[in-house]
Amino acid sequence: MKHFTKGFLFGVVATASAVAGAVFSFKKKVVQPIEEQEERFEENRKRANRKSHSAHHV
């Protein structure tokens, strides 16, 4: 019974670490590039808005 408990606990830890690795990898490969792209769009929108106001202010 002692070997079963050790094996079971090792399996639980290994599975949890695999799931955590998959989530981290998904975030790095999919979520982060989308967030960076949205930040660039937001910055470009702000810059264009400032430029538009500046051009019409003169």
Rank of each mutant, 00 (worst) to 15 (best):
K2N: 08
K2V: 14
H3N: 14
F4D: 07
F4V: 11
F4W: 12
F4L: 14
K6N: 10
K6P: 00
G7M: 09
G7D: 07
F8Q: 05
F8M: 11
F8W: 12
L9Q: 06
F10Q: 01
F10A: 06
G11E: 01
G11A: 04
G11N: 03
V12C: 04
V12N: 01
V12Y: 01
V13G: 00
V13S: 03
V13H: 00
A14L: 09
A14D: 02
A14F: 06
A14W: 01
A14M: 05
T15S: 14
T15R: 03
T15A: 15
S17W: 02
S17G: 01
S17L: 11
A18C: 09
A18H: 05
V19I: 13
V19K: 01
V19G: 00
V19W: 00
V19L: 07
A20F: 04
A20E: 01
G21E: 02
G21F: 08
G21R: 04
A22L: 12
A22H: 05
A22G: 15
A22S: 12
V23G: 03
V23C: 07
F24D: 13
F24N: 13
F24W: 12
F24L: 15
S25R: 10
S25K: 12
S25Q: 11
F26I: 03
F26T: 04
K27N: 12
K27Y: 12
K28Q: 15
K28M: 13
K28N: 13
K29W: 08
K29D: 09
V30P: 00
V31G: 01
V31R: 05
Q32M: 08
Q32T: 14
P33D: 06
P33Y: 07
P33S: 04
I34P: 03
I34H: 09
I34T: 08
I34L: 12
E35G: 03
E35T: 06
E35I: 10
E35L: 14
E35A: 07
E36L: 05
E36G: 02
E36A: 09
E36N: 12
E38T: 06
E38I: 10
E38M: 10
E38Q: 14
E39Y: 05
E39C: 01
R40E: 14
R40W: 07
R40L: 14
R40V: 14
F41C: 06
E42P: 00
E43A: 14
E43L: 09
E43R: 11
E43H: 07
E43K: 11
N44H: 03
R45A: 10
K46A: 06
K46R: 09
K46M: 05
K46W: 02
R47H: 08
R47L: 13
R47C: 00
A48F: 06
N49W: 06
N49Y: 09
N49H: 09
R50Y: 06
R50Q: 09
R50K: 09
K51G: 04
S52P: 00
S52L: 15
H53M: 15
H53K: 15
H53Q: 15
S54F: 11
A55K: 13
A55S: 14
A55V: 11
H56Q: 15
H56F: 15
H56E: 15
H57T: 05
H57Q: 12
H57R: 12
V58M: 06
V58N: 08
V58F: 07
